[in-house]
């Protein structure tokens, strides 16, 4: 109990700290970038799996669904091997940079976004298909229409991806290296403080991370609500 009290105290104190500000900003930057990239890839991919019929579709759907549970450490390891100087993309010197962390998180959450979007768009397609085909929409056009019409529900999908990204530590630890002032984010900072045995500070950081996730979700939810009311 005293640990919890101390945690809240350190959360308050460190809320004003400049180092913490940088860590929070980097966390947001990495995870928001990753979610943006993952959404750009995952949403159309999910919609395509919902709309297009082709041989092997079912196998891909199963594979994408299974990849929702990709272990962050494994993704981190693979991205590390790819970006390492000895790896195929070593020449770009991306290892231990925020870019590497963004790549790893994007790989981690793109399947999640694709799988959830596929389910959602497939349900919509059942409702829309005849009408859209009647109006002369080809599958490609239908795909974008469904994504746009499903935008409010798809935001929840994207938020789920963001949640997985911002909370993830295994991948960013490996490809980012938890370098002070360069690649240290909320989760790796929490891991570091935990390994120093400073559980109160670690928990304090954890509380800030949770508050951050809560704030982002609340903001997205409210905007969603307003837009939905305005646009039906």
């Amino acid at each position: 109990m005293s640990d919890l009290t101390a945690a809240f105290a350190s959360a308050l104190v460190f809320g004003l700290d400049a180092d913490l500000g940088r860590i929070v900003l980097l966390s947001l930057r990495v995870s928001l970038s990753a979610v943006a990239i993952a959404a750009i890839i995952g949403l159309p991919l999910g919609a395509a799996l919902a709309v297009f019929r082709f041989p092997g579709r079912r196998a891909i759907v199963i594979a994408v669904n299974a990849m929702m549970g990709l272990p962050p450490v494994v993704v981190g390891l693979i991205v590390y091997l790819l970006l390492s100087r000895a790896g195929p993309f070593g020449v770009f010197g991306l290892l231990f940079t925020p870019t590497a962390m963004i790549i790893a998180q994007a790989i981690l959450i793109a399947p999640l976004i694709a799988a959830l979007a596929r389910q959602l768009v497939e349900d919509m397609w059942a409702e829309y298909e005849e009408q859209l085909r009647s109006l002369g929409a080809g599958a490609g056009r239908a795909l974008w229409t469904l994504l746009w019409d499903g935008r409010f529900s798809l935001l929840t999908v994207v938020l789920a991806g963001f949640g997985r990204a911002i909370a993830e530590v295994g991948a960013v630890m490996i490809v980012g290296g938890n370098i002070d002032q360069v690649t240290r984010v909320m989760t790796t900072a929490i891991a570091l403080e935990t390994s120093k045995g400073d559980l109160a500070l670690a928990l304090g950081l954890g509380i800030i991370l949770i508050a951050l996730a809560l704030a982002i979700n609340a903001t997205a939810f409210s905007i969603n609500l307003v837009l939905r009311e305005r646009q039906g």
């Binding site: 940088r22 900003l25 947001l28 930057r29 928001l32 970038s33 943006a36 940079t97 925020p98 002032q181 360069v182 905007i223």
Partner: peptide, 15 residues
């Protein structure tokens, strides 16, 4: 929101 998101994404690393 889009602009804010882009700014965060495009923010250069202070390195």
């Amino acid at each position: 929101l889009l602009i804010a998101a882009l700014l965060i994404v495009a923010l250069p690393t202070a390195a």
